[in-house]
Write a protein that binds this DNA or RNA. Structure first.
Length: 461
RNA sequence: GGCCCUGUGGCGGAGUGGUUACGCAGCGGAUUGCAAAUCCGUGAACACCAGUUCGAUUCUGGUCGGGGCCUCCA
């Protein structure tokens, strides 16, 4: 069975065919590192990480090249530097580091390549020069701009005509542009801007425009035509449209064969944004929720649909994932099974249908529990293998069941074990009062005892 | 104003021209010293109005609601 992906440009699901199955390329727009990223920023991280995992499974781990850039030069970074007095490098290293930690906490694999914009200014300048030679760029007092009407196909990705954009657009800042839709390839330095935000060029001292960063880095690391280009839906226009314009006009080749865009996260029905003051930071969530719970919640909706981010969603994710871990615990010791079940794989192959994939994961948990109840050892072994293989694809079940259920504080597990052992003994003596007393003591601490045929186990809830 | 997406049971959330996923919650049963966990069973939905069709939740049009972009927000 092949992978099908919804291509924003084609507006339909298409069978995915890489140019070269031995070198599958994916580029995803990464963060601008001037402050902490919020949970919405991590939706593409988790979505495209899941796609990365699916591609690795399909084509082999070595065959997939996934690049996610770091934008470390940009107006907001400069503004932050001017406000705090910190160097650009200090700011960008700090927030890129936090971003990496957060991404790791939700089990996102490290991309194959993480290019930083400031390390590719040379490539960007070359690309702008190429565009200038071909007549797509012109300079003004403010910078070098891309002449949008020069490109006939402009607007193909977003299905937008230039006239439509201009109709309701607000009055643009006059930068001497020939057309309202023209965008900056190179911005001249303004008086007072820090030296570490300025590069020399034939046009004058300044810095690259935002869009050219991705075009140049994608071309350098992945080639002129990449297989998959992803990012948030807000980037579809103008960012990705502009990337296409720059790359295709400079190279004369298709920039990407598949364009994928994830939907936004909503907070109580509203878009999460700093201006609304309703942002939730991932590292705040990590105080209360395990990274896997956050990932499960994120994947519980389809990546293209808006997802309402609520406490209930996280609560349900925790309960459901806990059920899966519980099933895994019951078959944990039974090794040697084979992962033949294709339910999760098939779901992901259909345009990354993670809600179905998670439903399949629950089904596998049910199969594991059923096998345990039937005392079918072979089925238990297979169920264990199936669960772990599914977890690998989804970036879940990376803990042992004991770590999941009993990890928590971790410091007094021995004391709890002793209490549970005492309860087992009391039950063997039919001392129900003592058995219930111990259960109540633990329950007050948030610990739940699960009696089984061969003894008892416990978990933090 | 323009372009695009979207509206499913108490909640989250898939999918389909005709047999209504899955999870949480509910109900019944099994199991249990009693529970919890687990298993089995079960009630409950397709915004509204037309149209196409033998038949629409699924296709088309309209209405109402929600969202995105048109401003360097994932």
């Amino acid at each position: 069975m092949s992978i099908r992906l919804y291509d924003t440009a084609a507006r339909e699901k298409r069978v995915f065919k890489p140019q070269d199955p031995k070198r599958v390329t994916m580029y995803v727009c990464g963060p601008t590192v001037y402050n902490r990223a919020h949970i919405g920023n991590f939706r593409p991280v988790m979505v495209f990480d899941t796609l990365f995992r699916l591609l690795r499974k399909t084509y082999g781990a070595e065959a997939v090249i996934y690049a996610r850039n770091v934008t470390d030069i940009e107006d907001k970074i400069i503004a932050t530097s001017q406000e705090t007095g910190e160097s650009i490098e200090a700011i960008t290293r700090k927030y890129a580091g936090i971003y990496d930690e957060d991404a790791a906490a939700v089990n996102a694999l490290v991309p194959t390549i993480v290019p930083w914009a400031t390390e590719h200014v040379g490539e960007m300048v070359q690309m702008i020069e190429a565009l200038e030679r071909k007549g797509y760029a012109y300079a003004t007092d403010a910078g070098v701009f891309f002449n949008v009407p020069q490109m006939e196909e402009y607007g193909r990705l977003s299905g937008r005509k230039l006239e439509d954009n201009e109709a309701g657009a607000r009055v643009a800042v006059d930068l001497g542009k020939r057309n309202p839709a023209d965008f900056a390839l190179w911005k001249f330095a303004k008086p007072g801007e820090p030296e570490d935000a300025i590069w020399d060029s034939k046009w004058g001292r300044g810095r690259p425009g935002w869009h050219i960063e991705c075009s140049a880095m994608a071309a350098k690391h992945l080639g002129k035509t990449i297989d998959i280009h992803g990012g948030g839906i807000d980037l579809q226009f103008p960012h990705h449209e502009n990337e296409i314009a720059q790359s295709e006009c400079a190279h004369g080749e298709t920039m990407a064969n598949y364009w994928m865009h994830n939907g936004f996260l909503d907070m109580a029905g509203e878009n999460m944004s700093k201006s609304l003051g309703n942002v939730v930071l991932l590292n705040e969530l990590l105080d209360d929720w395990d990274g896997e719970v956050i990932r499960f919640a994120m994947l519980s909706g389809h990546y293209r649909a808006p997802l309402d981010w609520t406490g209930d969603l996280l609560e349900q994710a925790k309960t459901t994932l806990g059920r899966v871990y519980g099933a895994l615990r019951r078959v944990w010791g039974i090794e040697g099974g084979q992962a033949r079940d294709k339910g999760v794989l098939r779901a992901l192959q259909d345009d990354l249908n993670t809600p179905i994939a998670l439903a399949e994961l629950s089904r596998l948990a049910g199969e594991a529990n059923g096998a345990v109840d039937r005392k079918d050892e072979a089925a238990m072994a297979d169920a264990r293998a199936n669960l772990l293989a599914a977890g690998e694809l989804l970036g879940l079940l990376t803990m042992t069941p004991a770590e999941w259920e009993q990890g928590g504080d971790g410091h007094d597990n021995a004391r709890i074990d002793a209490l549970v052992a005492g309860r087992i003994e009391a039950r063997e003596n039919k001392d129900w009062a003592e058995a219930d007393r111990i259960r109540d003591v633990l329950k007050a601490e948030g610990i739940e005892i699960m009696d089984g045929a061969g003894g008892a186990t416990w978990r933090r809830v």
